[in-house]
């Protein structure tokens, strides 16, 4: 219980940091901290596999991409812009949503399941059980999600692609050399990284 309270406090502080910090990199780092705390939550629940996946996918891949983009675009600190009332509106909506969430959670008639039951269902939290759920019970849904992600990725690539010259099939050696030089100029072109998203 003490562990839970400590972890909960840390993760809430991290989540507040994401919203309140002005510097985008600091906000992203606070999010990384929150995600790592969530991974520790999984560890305390004996779900080791989920914890590892949480760290690899969220902290290790997605947030690295976030930070990469923030650094590449060199986003500066944001100050109150032309519409100062917008922030107060956002605060109001946020407080309302949080209140709604708390009321919803407290009014929920469902009971917390017995921990022994949960532990039996997790079976030590290893990969086999999750694989069974993903690849046997929900095979079709899993495959469809994969196709959906692929579609999103192809769409993103299609959106950022510049129009090709008509004779794209037969690029002269000169043009290719020029293209290479241009690519060499920019470290880590965003298209390349886009394709790396998981």
């Amino acid at each position: 219980m003490v562990t839970f309270a400590l972890l909960a406090a840390v993760s809430v502080v991290g989540a507040l940091g994401v919203v309140l910090l002005r510097q985008p990199i600091h906000a992203a780092l606070a999010l990384v901290g929150t995600l790592l705390t969530l991974a520790v939550f999984f560890v305390t629940l004996q779900a080791h596999f989920l914890a590892a996946i949480q760290v690899i996918v969220y902290a290790g891949a997605i947030m690295v991409l976030f930070l990469f983009v923030i650094m590449l675009l060199n986003v500066e600190e944001q100050h109150a812009g032309a519409r100062p009332w917008l922030r107060w509106l956002a605060y109001g909506v946020g407080v309302l949503a949080a209140a709604g969430l708390i009321v919803g959670a407290l009014a929920d008639p469902r009971q917390i399941p017995d921990p022994a039951l949960a532990r039996a269902a997790l079976r030590g939290g290893n990969a086999g059980l999750i694989a069974e759920v993903l690849f046997v019970d929900f095979m079709l849904a899993f495959q469809l999600v994969g196709v959906l992600l692929l579609t999103a990725m192809v769409g993103a690539v299609a959106l950022v692609q510049r129009p090709q010259p008509p004779s794209a099939g037969a690029i002269s050696a000169e043009a290719r050399e020029a293209g290479l030089k241009e690519r060499r100029g920019r470290p880590g072109s965003p298209e390349v990284v886009e394709a790396g998203g998981r």
């Binding site: 990199i25 780092l29 790592l36 080791h48 596999f49 902290a59 290790g60 690295v64 930070l67 030590g124």
Partner: peptide, 25 residues
């Protein structure tokens, strides 16, 4: 001795990257 030893090492090393690229920033 972790049941997910392979994933543990991959996860921890992938977080280690932050050191390098936060330092540069």
């Amino acid at each position: 001795d972790l049941d997910i030893g392979v994933l543990y090492i991959l996860a921890v090393t992938s977080v280690g990257v932050y050191g390098i690229f936060l330092g540069g920033w």
